[in-house]
């Protein structure tokens, strides 16, 4: 034992998982529907979870404004982080502004169950640092081409949940969902993939259920 080591606990040591809200990162290419998914999750989960959102859109308040306009969360539960033209840097290499935003939300609002951190639209290589989030969702859409899962990249291959979004558009863009399912399974091994259409399922049921399982777990 080293009692001295415990005499002066660092008052600003980061809270570890369990002592703070669960943090889930939501990443994916531009236009894949990250913000719409965040809005759907807020609508579905806000009744039984204390939650807040951090956005990293390059246009600063664009995503936050979308969430506000859609009335899914009050303004004090949404923080926007500027990323200096480098959205992937802000969620992976230098996570300080996002950590500040997460901590400020919990400090200002009291204990929270869940903070969703939405990345700015980036490319297939963008993933969240484990120092920032506990779990991450990667969102791609069928209109981006049914080859996306086969291309892989860290987002597709390592995200805890892969969401293939806008399945209602598949017939219109000639995307073969069975090819996407097969390629995703090949790239991801045992990691789960869900297919989603917010037009047909505005509550984003499979994703909301997955998130609930993590928060309660």
């Amino acid at each position: 034992m080293h009692p001295e080591a415990h005499t002066h606990p660092d008052p600003h040591a980061p809270l570890t998982a369990g002592a703070r809200a669960l943090r889930i990162g939501i990443g994916g290419p531009v236009g894949s529907g990250k913000t719409a998914l965040v809005a759907a999750l807020c609508r579905t989960l806000a009744a039984d979870l204390r939650l807040a959102v951090v956005t990293n859109d390059i246009y600063t308040t664009e995503d936050a404004d979308f969430l506000l306009r859609n009335g899914v969360l009050p303004a004090d539960r949404i923080r926007a982080v500027e990323t200096g033209c480098c959205p992937h840097t802000a969620i992976r290499d230098d996570i300080s502004a996002n950590l500040d935003a997460c901590e400020d939300l919990e400090h200002d609002l009291g204990p929270l169950d869940l903070v969703l951190v939405e990345s700015g639209g980036d490319n297939l290589t963008a993933t969240f640092s484990k120092g920032l989030v506990d779990h991450q969702i990667f969102v791609v859409d069928v209109a981006g081409g049914d080859k996306v899962p086969r291309k892989g990249g860290p987002g597709v291959t390592t995200a805890d949940l892969l969401v293939v979004n806008k399945t209602d558009l598949a017939p219109l863009v000639g995307a073969d969902l069975s090819v996407m399912a097969r390629d995703a399974a090949a790239r991801r091994g045992d990691l789960p993939t869900v297919f989603l259409s917010l037009v047909e399922d505005p509550a984003a049921t499979p994703v909301a259920d997955w998130v609930r399982g993590l928060v309660k777990g």
Partner: peptide, 11 residues
């Protein structure tokens, strides 16, 4: 410049 102290987001 890669030291993770938030500088990349400031011009």
């Amino acid at each position: 410049g890669r030291f993770p102290a938030g500088g990349h987001a400031h011009s």
